[in-house]
């Protein structure tokens, strides 16, 4: 009895599944979120990355889409690389801030044509190694990478063992730091804090006690407003010097941040798609909003409202006719 029943049940549930799903082929490029378009509103789903700058972009875009264009906005937090995949599958309609992923761009934009470029965000990003300005003022020569070894002792922590600590952040961020430390022959240990949140907490703690530290960080970033930091000069960036991840021994490039849209959304997304293509602001604007969110602990909506109220001229240009 028992032996015959199990396959029967399995078959029945498989049949039910097929019945529920319909019998044709599923379209893997139309995988919208189940929470989208609820209750009749047109919905735009935006990917929001974990750093606050990206939250600021999304907050302002969300505010304008909802209040000026009458859309509903869903945000999903996805890390950078998976966001490309989600974008191509239609789970997300747009990414507003991409720091340069040539592999993904080749795969999705050039080959599969499921993603389209949405133009530049207007903000230029730069990654580097930073020391707090209070420390750089006392020891001006620390800003040259060649002198870093002499300060290794100052940067030592429990986590870095006998070496100096280079604090790295979220695993999702672009980083060559391990290779850099090795290839530049530095007496340092890369310590991953695991998330940007953890890294910020750590940096703030160091700053509160005026302790020296060396950290991977990036611009634009609101934290500079609170903890002024000075960049350490690494060997100059040249086109292609970071081609092979194992052999990198140069600084990070300055990257114009870009927007990407799901191809179907870019074509059929109506005013929302046009608006997102037009969306473009400056480093200063982004920092203002980011600071309100992260430091004054305003809700992203309130922060966006404040910026929108004060900068009507800027955003009017983005609204399509």
């Amino acid at each position: 009895m028992a032996r015959t029943r199990t396959p029967v049940v399995a078959l029945a549930s498989a049949a039910a599944l097929v019945a529920v799903a319909g019998c044709g082929a599923a379209d893997m490029t139309r995988q919208a979120s189940p929470f989208a378009n609820a209750r009749g509103a047109k919905t735009v789903t935006l990917s929001v990355q974990s750093w606050v700058g990206a939250q600021a972009n999304v907050a302002v875009a969300e505010y304008l889409l909802e209040h000026e264009l009458g859309y509903r906005v869903d945000t999903v937090q996805i890390d950078e690389v998976p966001a490309w995949d989600a974008l191509s599958q239609g789970r997300v309609d747009a990414i507003l801030e991409d720091w340069g992923h040539p592999d993904q761009e080749a795969r999705y934009v050039r080959d599969k044509k499921t993603i389209r470029s949405g133009g530049e965000l207007g903000v230029t990003g730069h990654i580097g190694w930073f020391v707090p300005t209070y420390f750089a003022k006392q020891h001006p020569d620390v800003t040259d990478w060649r002198n870093l070894d002499t300060y290794a002792d100052s940067f030592r922590t429990a986590e870095s063992g006998g070496k100096g600590q280079l604090l790295d952040g979220s695993p999702s961020y672009v980083t060559n730091d391990k290779a850099l430390v090795k290839n530049l022959g530095l007496d340092y240990q890369v310590v991953f804090s695991g998330s940007e949140a953890a890294q910020i907490t750590q940096i703030k703690q160091f700053a509160k006690e005026k302790k020296p530290f060396l950290t991977y960080w990036y611009k634009p970033q609101w934290l500079f407003e609170q903890v002024p930091m000075t960049e350490v000069k690494l060997p100059a960036y040249k086109e292609g010097c970071d081609a092979e991840p194992e052999k990198v021994a140069c600084a990070y490039p300055h990257t114009p941040l870009k927007k990407y849209l799901n191809a179907r959304f870019a074509g059929a997304g109506g005013r929302a798609a046009t608006f997102l293509k037009n969306f473009s602001w400056g480093t200063e604007d982004q920092n203002k909003v980011a600071l309100m969110i992260a430091d004054q602990k305003m809700s992203p909506q309130d922060a966006a409202k404040e910026w929108v109220d004060a900068n009507e001229k800027k955003w009017r240009a983005w609204i399509p006719e």
């Binding site: 599944l17 529920v20 082929a25 599923a26 893997m28 995988q31 189940p34």
Partner: peptide, 26 residues
């Protein structure tokens, strides 16, 4: 990733599974 949009395993199984989940959650 390269075959997800074309391979029958995805089109006829995982795709439906995924759609069924989305549909019911929705």
């Amino acid at each position: 990733i390269d075959n997800r949009d074309t391979h029958p395993l995805f089109l006829y199984f995982f795709g439906h599974l995924s759609n069924a989940v989305v549909l019911s959650v929705r």
